[in-house]
Design a protein around this nucleic acid. Structure first.
Lengths: 185, 185
DNA sequence: AATTTACGTCAGTCATATTGACTTAATTCT
DNA sequence: AGAATTAAGTCAATATGACTGACGTAAATT
């Protein structure tokens, strides 16, 4: 479920297509309340990734590059193996993307000080700038989405998103994110 | 940014890899607070789509099939054109996926009553069952994520997600979702 | 009668992923 | 010191889901 958008859309009921009407009536009872959240999450995520996509396209990068750049920016000096575990892709998939990022001067590989097998990953000045720009765009959207919500909503949403994550993975992700969770108790 | 997960992950700082420590310290000041939301949203969405992916795999379906099945289930009798506008993919891309769903007996095409050019789309009994199962999985995850949140959180999250969507698209999506917005606003 | 719409199809391409096997170098374990 | 493991890279072949652009046909609308 990715990449959805539409301009002038017409759906049955509006078009009088087949006599059938809009979404099947499941929203009458409270039992299926979060039903609409499914679709909202879908569209929200789509637009959330849309902003970066546009910028990345200028560099002939895709989402795979975004992921790599983002995590290297957040964890300077990380190993290739770490990245593989986080992204859960194969070495081959990462290899290509990583090579392109290195070739484009966005990511730098330095030999490990203690372990010379390692190629520790760092963003270059250019890579840092791109990563920041992409993050900025996503922050702008997030901040806009938080406008007008009651006090404490940001923390509620943070909690909600965390609880959407597989329980097994939460601890790892929290360590990775190192958010304001700890700070707030 | 899709498909991320990890089991035993080690990151610099823990591994003592290169002497560099975890995420670069940007979370000290409140100006960058929603930073962590970026990553949480990323992982949350990943796991959100993970449940359906596993079921779909059994049928040799992917996310593209999920999207199509979902919207047809929600809008029985919709036209191919509607689907193209919602999904914003090309006819060719949809064609293949749709054909597979029809061949697998998940979706049925019926000639429009008033307009015989149309191939109105309906889920079959089987398709309906699969769609329901996929929805059920996502509902379970959503409901689990809502546990323990303060009163009114669901509405807050609904509002948040809506405001994450491009302003131009919101009206269309609201019409499509037909959620409890109207009922409560 | 001409145009537009709904749908389908052909042919070729691209990005991102996959699996499995294999190599090299360096480190760690026994 | 020798064996095993780990980090990283590489090869080859394949799959999925998307793309562009052109073309065809039937049916509806103007």
């Amino acid at each position: 479920m990715t990449d959805v958008n539409f301009k002038t859309m017409s759906l049955p009921g509006q078009t009088g297509a087949g006599g059938t009407s809009g979404p099947s009536d499941q929203s009458s009872d409270d039992a299926s309340l979060p039903y609409d959240l499914i679709e909202l999450l879908f569209f929200a995520y789509r637009d959330f990734t849309g902003d970066p996509d546009d910028v990345l396209a200028k560099f002939d990068f895709g989402r795979a590059h975004h992921r790599v750049l983002h995590f290297v920016e957040r964890n300077p000096g990380m190993m290739v193996t770490d990245l593989l575990n986080i992204l859960r892709i194969t070495k081959q998939s990462l290899g290509r993307v990583l090579k392109q990022l290195v070739d484009a001067g966005m990511i730098e590989q330095r030999e490990g000080l203690h372990d010379r097998r390692q190629r520790l990953l760092y963003t270059t000045e250019q890579g840092h700038a791109l990563a920041e720009e992409l993050t900025r765009l996503q922050k702008v959207r997030l901040e806009r989405a938080l406008i007008g919500l009651p006090n404490g909503s940001e923390e509620t949403i943070r909690q909600f998103l965390l609880q959407m994550i597989d329980p097994d993975a939460r601890a790892d992700i929290l360590a990775l994110v190192r958010s304001s969770f700890d700070l707030k108790g």
